[in-house]
């Protein structure tokens, strides 16, 4: 993890964002997926949003990327309110805030060679220069640790880790200032996951990128994030510097997540329901 930057301006700021989704079933009431969340991400900094499945992590990511407009609250990028930006305004802003998704294969078109896949976003945003473009693609390949020969490969020739590196190269192609990383390594095998984690750390160090890092895995977050916000049922239940939150978790959800990642030896919280008791017992036995 690069050292925490001293005092740059916030790159991203979420102010009380709320996202509602239609409920399951025909007459079901809408579900509040994100419930008044506020947080900031600074340049060179990683904020991790941590929570179990269904806690609202991915909805939060969609909202800050304006892939789904929040129902209330606002999102500021470099101090500017982007909540009500026109489609055209948003298009101009997209390159600066790029997503990296969980499924590395699903994000790539199966017939497109690696080199073309990396060039594609540059072309879509009309920044392609036939003179310098190919060199730019080569340098992106190098920056994400892919051998130049892999430029001609198809996604089906690549491992999961290599695909995710292509995904990261595509995101970097537009010279973003913020990456929104939605579980970027949780679909990868453990032995290749570490390499992608190291790559993300190095890129941040080199380029001062801000990361909003969505994850359910505290073991990973502890290594990669400067600050952490724990989500439960759409709300941030605990927030702080990662080391402090890991050392002295205040909320039972935080303890539960820490325990499940093997980072907490004590029994997690007071358990009420049978399910919670099961999880807490697991924490005890799962402690390594």
């Amino acid at each position: 993890m690069p050292p925490m930057p001293t005092h740059p301006a916030p790159l991203l700021e979420a102010r009380g964002i709320t996202v509602r989704r239609p409920g399951r079933g025909r007459r079901a009431a809408p579900v509040t997926a994100v419930d008044g969340c506020s947080f900031t991400v600074r340049a060179g900094e990683t904020l991790a949003l941590v929570g179990a499945s269904g806690s609202g992590k991915s909805s939060t990511a969609e909202a800050v990327l304006m892939l789904r407009r929040p129902d209330s609250g606002s999102v500021l990028f470099e101090g500017r309110d982007i909540t009500d930006l026109s489609a055209e305004g948003m298009r101009a802003l997209r390159p600066a805030m790029q997503p990296v998704f969980q499924d590395p294969f699903g994000a790539l078109s199966p017939r497109m060679r690696v080199r073309d896949a990396i060039a594609e976003p540059i072309k879509v945003h009309k920044r392609w220069d036939p003179e310098t473009g190919p060199d730019e693609v080569d340098s992106l390949l190098g920056r994400v640790g892919l051998a130049p020969e892999l430029g001609g490969a198809l996604p089906s020739d690549l491992s999961g880790g290599q695909c995710q590196r292509v995904g990261i190269a595509r995101a970097l192609a537009l010279r973003p200032r913020l990456l929104v990383l939605d579980e970027p390594v949780s679909a990868l095998d453990p032995s290749v996951r570490a390499g992608v984690v190291n790559l993300l750390t190095r890129l941040q160090e080199e380029q001062g990128l801000g990361y909003l890092f969505i994850s359910h895995d505290f073991a990973l977050v502890r290594r990669i994030a400067h600050r952490v916000a724990v989500l439960d049922a759409g709300r941030i239940v605990e927030e702080g510097p990662t080391a402090e939150v890991c050392r002295d978790p205040g909320h039972y959800r935080t303890r539960e997540l820490l325990a499940a990642s093997g980072l907490l030896a004590q029994r997690a919280g007071t358990a009420g329901a049978a399910d919670a008791a099961g999880a807490a017992d697991g924490a005890l036995r799962g402690a390594r």
Partner: peptide, 14 residues
């Protein structure tokens, strides 16, 4: 293959 979230995983293992 895709990691279950750790709390759910612990629960299933239990």
């Amino acid at each position: 293959t895709t990691a279950l979230d750790p709390v759910t995983r612990e629960h299933v293992l239990d």
